[in-house]
Simulated scan of single mutants.
Amino acid sequence: MNDRTVGRHAGPGLNRRRFLAAAGLTAAGAALATTIQDRAEAAPAAAGVFRVPVEDVRHTRTWMAWPDTTSIWRGKLSGVQADIALIARTIAKYEPVVLCANPGSAAKARQMCGPTVTVISSIPVDDCWMRDTGPVFRTDGYGGLDTVGLNFNGWGDKQTHAKDALVAERIAAYVGVPFTYADLVGEGGAIEQDGAGTLMATRSSIVNRNRNPGVSERQLERAMCDAYGASKVIWFDGVYGQDITDDHVDATSRFLAPGEALVQMPVAADTDDYARDARKQYSVLSASTTAAGRAMDVMRLQGPDYNKIRSANRDFLASYANFYLCNDAVISAQFGDKRADEAAKATLARLYPDRRIEQLDIDRLGTGGGGIHCVTQQQPAA
């Protein structure tokens, strides 16, 4: 669920950009944020040897989740399930996929995903956004693996999340690795890491009172670095209040390697808040350095023309940048703008010459405001 940064103009409709489903909001987020603030006031813990690796490392498996809630998806549910199944089956050609489903819908998930995907019903879920609800896996370079939870609160109590708030800890227990909670409220799609000490994120998502009220940017920066094993954060302003994520970074800007990043750029005619945000992200990154002091090498990934894509939904997320790296492949989306789709595939092939590029039609998920990276969470090999 991310991530959401390159959608079109705000407008009514059933999708994540317009706060898809307000059912089941709780006071838990506010109480948790108070606890986070208290902890953030204390001296930060010394950085350990564990850090979140860059995403092109080898994986043990991919984690996903099965949506089954009509109060969230309404008439779109069957189409979104078809897209989730397609993504899971595609990734399963390259590495194991474990998909968490509620007991009542596990059989349908198995039927739609097929025998190559492992469906488990012991970890209940509210929705499909495993990037945000799942644990963040860390490695120490010596065979050690642990996990961090980002205290998921339904993107600022915008959506029910009683089950999803527990997914990270339950997956860690299932895998049998240590688990700790970070000293901030956030989501995996809100933070990008290069695996060598540098993070990037939008202020609109992290420095936001719906997640971290009263906590300063400096405190949050320390908490992020402690959780990810990093020492520097590159901040973008982002876009406040126009989508459920408050502008996750992973739909626009991604790390490729230490000192290397890409930004999905809008077409020249796009001038909405998300287009302006993308151009600013490119500018900020181009002027930034890594934690090691190296100048950033920033590449452009041209986005599609929204007048030429298949979807007519004004809030559709057409993000090539929201791709997922799995073992030996890059799983990305295509949107029906043939020239842009082909150009994006060629760009990804140049960036990852040793991987197969798979482009999928996931328009139902895109109409819901998410992409492939949003619904996946990698478990790196220790």
Rank of each mutant, 00 (worst) to 15 (best):
V207P: 01
P44D: 09
A227L: 08
A21Q: 05
I372D: 00
T5L: 08
G176I: 10
L166C: 10
R39T: 11
R254H: 00
K108I: 15
P213K: 01
N212W: 00
T139I: 14
A109K: 02
A291W: 10
A349F: 01
N151T: 07
G214R: 08
K108Q: 15
P67H: 01
D270Y: 03
V52T: 15
T60D: 11
A31S: 10
N212G: 06
V136S: 11
S286K: 13
D270K: 02
L351G: 04
A107S: 15
V117A: 04
L86G: 06
G188P: 13
D68L: 01
K338V: 10
A21T: 12
P380T: 13
V263R: 03
I123C: 04
P124L: 08
L20Y: 08
M296L: 11
Q111R: 14
E342P: 01
G156Y: 06
P353H: 00
L351R: 05
L199C: 00
Q219R: 09
A28P: 03
V239Q: 02
V177D: 07
S205C: 15
S231G: 08
I72Q: 00
L25R: 15
A168K: 06
G336Q: 03
K93N: 15
R300H: 05
N151C: 13
N208E: 03
Y320Q: 05
P266N: 12
G13E: 06
T376V: 05
R211I: 09
D315R: 10
T69Q: 02
A257S: 13
V185T: 12
T35H: 10
M200R: 05
Q242H: 12
F255D: 12
D243E: 12
S78N: 13
Q379E: 14
R314E: 15
A47L: 15
R170L: 11
R209K: 10
G214N: 14
G176V: 05
L86R: 10
W73D: 12
V57C: 11
E358V: 14
G141T: 12
V298F: 05
D127I: 07
A251H: 00
D127L: 07
F335V: 04
D250Y: 04
A382P: 15
D246M: 05
S253F: 07
R18W: 14
P353Y: 00
N102L: 05
P266C: 08
V330S: 04
A107E: 14
Q379G: 09
P124F: 02
D237A: 15
G369S: 03
R218P: 00
Q379T: 11
T245I: 01
V119T: 09
G104S: 13
T35R: 14
P304V: 08
S105I: 05
E169F: 03
N327H: 02
Y306K: 13
Q242I: 10
M64C: 06
E169M: 02
R138P: 00
